[in-house]
C-alpha cells in the first residue's frame, strides 16, 4: 500500500531497458538527489522483488524521529548505515554484506550523499560498490537512473511538488578480472549517467 502511495505521489514509471525484472540477487545502484530516491526505486519494483530488496539508507536521517524510523525499519526494511567516522565495529560494509548473506538484493547510492546543484553531474562514486562487487561476484550489478526526483523533493526541502518521476533500469555491469578500483567506479558512474540520455531518447 505504501508502495502504491509512493508511485502515486512520484508518478514513477519503471523502464527496464537493459534487463528484465528477475528474481535473482542484485545490487541496484543509482544517482542520488532526494530522500525519496530509495523509496521510489523500492516502490517501482514488482511486488515479489520488492519484498526481497532493501535500500541502503543513512542512519542520521532515517533513524531521526519515530515515523522515519518506523518507515525505514518496518516498511522499506532499509539497511541503515552510519555516515560518521568509520570504525571497526561501525563499518557500513558489514551491515551491507550481512544483508547480502541473507539473500537480499540491495539499493545503493554510491555517491554517498545527495547532489544539490542543478547543473553539476553526479558526485564521484565511493568505493563501497567496488568492495561489494569484488567480494560478491555472484550478485548482479544493475545501474539505475532516477529522473526528476530532485525536482519533487530536493535536498533541504520538506514540501513536495508532485511532478512525474522516471526510473530507468539499465544493462547490468560486472567487475573485470584485473580492473582497478578507480576504473571500475568511473565505469559504474558512466553506466548510470548514460541512462539519463537513454531515458530521453
Amino acid at each position: 500500500m505504501i508502495a502504491s502511495l509512493i508511485r502515486l505521489v512520484t508518478g514513477a514509471q519503471a523502464r527496464w531497458i537493459g534487463c528484465i525484472p528477475e528474481a535473482r540477487q542484485r545490487i541496484y545502484f543509482a544517482n542520488h538527489a532526494s530522500n525519496l530516491d530509495g523509496p521510489t526505486i523500492w516502490a517501482s519494483l514488482p511486488d515479489a522483488l520488492r519484498a526481497r530488496t532493501r535500500p541502503i539508507a543513512a542512519r542520521d536521517y532515517w533513524d531521526a524521529g519515530p515515523l522515519r524510523r518506523r518507515l525505514a525499519k518496518d516498511v522499506f526494511h532499509a539497511v541503515l548505515i552510519s555516515r560518521a567516522k568509520i570504525t571497526a565495529e561501525n563499518n557500513p560494509m558489514r551491515d551491507m554484506e550481512a544483508a547480502l548473506a541473507e539473500g537480499a538484493s540491495l539499493i545503493l547510492f554510491p555517491e554517498g550523499t545527495r547532489t544539490v546543484d542543478d547543473d553539476a553531474g553526479m558526485n564521484p562514486f565511493k568505493p563501497g560498490l567496488w568492495h561489494l562487487a569484488k567480494r560478491h561476484p555472484e550478485v548482479q550489478l544493475v545501474p539505475v537512473h532516477l529522473e526528476n526526483l530532485n525536482r519533487i523533493l530536493p535536498k533541504g526541502e520538506i514540501l513536495l511538488v508532485p511532478l512525474l518521476a522516471a526510473v530507468t533500469f539499465g544493462e547490468p555491469i560486472a567487475l573485470g578480472e584485473a580492473e582497478d578500483k578507480q576504473a571500475f567506479l568511473e565505469r559504474a558512474r558512466a553506466a548510470v549517467a548514460a541512462l539519463s540520455a537513454a531515458a530521453d531518447a
Binding site: G11, V116, D118, N148, N150, R151, P154, E157, L159, L160, V161, P162, L163, L164
Partner: peptide
C-alpha cells in the same frame, strides 16, 4: 487541471529555486 499541470511542469525544465513557486502553483 492538477494532473495536466503536473505533465506540463514535468516537461518544462525548471530550476531548484522554483521549488516553492511550484508548490504554490499546485
Amino acid at each position: 487541471s492538477f494532473l495536466a499541470l503536473r505533465e506540463f511542469i514535468t516537461l518544462t525544465p525548471t530550476r531548484r529555486s522554483d521549488h516553492h513557486t511550484l508548490f504554490w502553483a499546485f
